[in-house]
């Protein structure tokens, strides 16, 4: 027992050191999704000049969670999920066991393009956001703030992991009889597969019949 006690003390210290690097997270509900933003993602100095903006999250995903991620740049609204522009999507198959993964999003200005890099687990993808963003005035909303506590969500929630837009590019559009103020920007959204049809409606600026506002998580402005 003495050995275990000493071992536990060392383990606890090591876990604290790792959590200082990767964010602290207490899993109270094994069926929920947990997201914590990593305060200072580790970027080697020779890599840093190639990344303009970077967000990294540690995610806990429950068993059987079936979701896809959508990423794109174009026009976004301040609230809601309206999005117009080119986008890419990728599906993550459900797993029988719960698991932790890192989710990384970076933006990099390359010539006159904005390249969005997205990595989740072992797979990564990059695409061009056909949008001109002024990074100095950028409004950024994320589900979890760097240095802040882990956030938990149930499996029936659409998760706008990141929304970034330039507030100086406001443009009012008439969509479905409603006036929506749109901005040049981009979004990265994690959507449960069962809510794909609802997400498609929201993306077009429509509210699906019977859709509960609580099924769409709200981001926090950074």
């Amino acid at each position: 027992m003495i050995i275990w006690t000493r071992d536990n003390r060392e383990l606890r210290e090591d876990v604290l050191r790792l959590e200082a690097e990767l964010g602290r997270m207490e899993i109270d509900d094994v069926d929920a999704i947990y997201i914590v933003a990593i305060e200072e993602p580790i970027v080697p100095p020779e890599v840093a000049p190639h990344v303009d903006l970077l967000w990294q999250f540690r995610c806990y995903l429950p068993p059987g969670y079936d979701f896809q991620t959508m990423r794109g740049g174009g026009r976004v609204s301040e609230s809601g999920m309206y999005f117009q522009g080119g986008f890419g999507s990728s599906r993550s198959s459900p797993r029988p066991e719960p698991y932790h993964e890192l989710l990384t999003i970076s933006l990099r200005r390359q010539d006159d393009r904005l390249v969005c890099f997205y990595s989740f687990g072992g797979s990564s993808v990059s695409g061009t956001w056909n949008v001109d963003l002024d990074s100095e005035n950028l409004v950024v909303e994320t589900l979890a703030s760097p240095g802040g506590p882990a956030q938990s969500f149930d499996q029936s929630t659409i998760l706008p992991i990141l929304k970034a837009y330039d507030p100086n590019t406001a443009e009012v559009k008439e969509i479905n009889g409603q006036s929506i103020t749109t901005y040049a920007g981009g979004i990265v959204v994690v959507c449960p597969r069962k809510l794909d049809p609802e997400f498609e409606q929201l993306r077009r600026g429509r509210t699906p019949d019977g859709f509960q506002a609580s099924s769409l998580a709200e981001g926090q402005r950074q």
Binding site: L18, E21, L22, P41, I42, V43, P44, V47, H50, V51, L54, Q56, R58, H100, E101, L102, T104, S106, R108, V115, F117, S119, S124, V125, S126
Partner: peptide, 25 residues
């Protein structure tokens, strides 16, 4: 998830990858 390298056997080549942050690095 960490990029920390734990050396299990000092006589063996070992590595751990840093989380990728850009497509070409």
């Amino acid at each position: 998830l960490s990029s920390r390298l734990e050396i299990a056997d000092p006589d063996r080549l070992q590595c751990v990858a840093y989380p990728p942050v850009a497509k070409d690095l």
